[in-house]
Amino acid sequence: MTKIRSVMAVSVDGFITGRDPGPGHGLGDGGILHDWYWNGDTPSTVVPAFRTSETTRRFIDPFAARVGAVIAGRNSYDDANGWSGGSPHPTAPLFVVSHRPAPPEATPAQHFSTSIEEAATAAREAAGDLDIVLMGGGVLAAALTAGLVDEIVIHQVPVLLGAGRRLFQELPVHTRLSLIEAIPAPDVTHLRYQLER
């Protein structure tokens, strides 16, 4: 059964970027949030560029293998320079939620929608029996409000950034979570929550 889960690296004080993120600046001064993807000696079996600790590889590879589509917000898309026309996942198509038109450099592999519901419907069709990953605080807030999220995976990095874009924006709903896993690893702690229905 297809699950929709948010998967993001987050500072201890709740930021998914540092100061001044944006095109040409990436995650601003918060680039440290993803260092653990590349500072280990164990290659991922799913995402060839990743070199993590063995503990992290055992946690993330099963999830990465199940990704059939990615939904990202426009800020995430712009911060990543449009993932060079592709997707943050090596095999999953990208669906971008944006009220602005697709930029000229967008490719046919990237799909733009104006609502989280529209993006989720298209992503489910593309994912088949696989899962959908959400990227970006705005997309997560919209998906939580729409009741679309099954799990939230937080890769908590032991740093205080002090500013940037927050993971959780203001939410109009009260949501209880159950902690399923807490896995400490070098430079990151992996936390997996299930939404209580």
Rank of each mutant, 00 (worst) to 15 (best):
Ala72Ser: 15
Ala146Tyr: 07
Phe95Tyr: 05
Ile32Leu: 03
Val47Met: 15
Thr175Met: 01
Ala69Asp: 10
Ala182Pro: 09
Gly68Ile: 02
Asn81Thr: 14
Gly85Asp: 06
His190Val: 05
Gln156Leu: 04
Val153Trp: 06
Pro172Ala: 09
Tyr77Phe: 05
Val149Glu: 01
Pro158Glu: 13
Asn81Trp: 07
Arg192Thr: 02
Thr107Val: 04
His89Trp: 06
Gly147Cys: 03
Gly24Arg: 10
Gln110Asp: 08
Val70Gly: 08
His190Pro: 02
Glu125Ala: 15
Thr42Arg: 09
Gly85Tyr: 12
Asp20Pro: 12
Gln156Pro: 00
Glu117Leu: 09
Val153Arg: 14
Asp61Lys: 06
Val7Phe: 05
Glu105Ala: 13
Ser76Phe: 05
Trp36Ala: 15
Leu130Pro: 02
Ala182Ser: 13
Asp61Thr: 12
Met8Trp: 01
Val46Trp: 05
Gly86Ala: 14
Pro48Lys: 10
Ser76Asp: 02
Asp150Gly: 12
Gly136Trp: 03
Gly26Pro: 07
Glu151Ile: 07
Gly68Arg: 04
Leu144Glu: 02
His111Met: 03
Pro186Ser: 13
Ser76Glu: 08
Tyr77Gly: 00
Gly138Cys: 01
Glu54Phe: 13
Thr145Asp: 01
Ile71Leu: 13
Phe15Glu: 02
Ala64Cys: 11
Val139Leu: 03
Glu117Cys: 09
Gln194Val: 01
Gly138Val: 00
Ile32Phe: 02
Gly137Gln: 08
Pro172Phe: 01
Phe59His: 14
Val46Ile: 15
Gly18Arg: 08
Ala119Trp: 04
Pro62Gln: 05
Val159Cys: 10
Val97Ala: 08
Glu181Ile: 03
Pro101His: 10
Ala122Gln: 15
Thr175Val: 00
Tyr193Ser: 02
His89Phe: 07
Val157Ala: 09
Gly164Thr: 00
Phe112His: 04
Pro43Asp: 04
Pro62Ser: 13
Ala72Trp: 14
Arg192Tyr: 07
Gly162Leu: 14
Ile71Gly: 05
Asp79Gln: 03
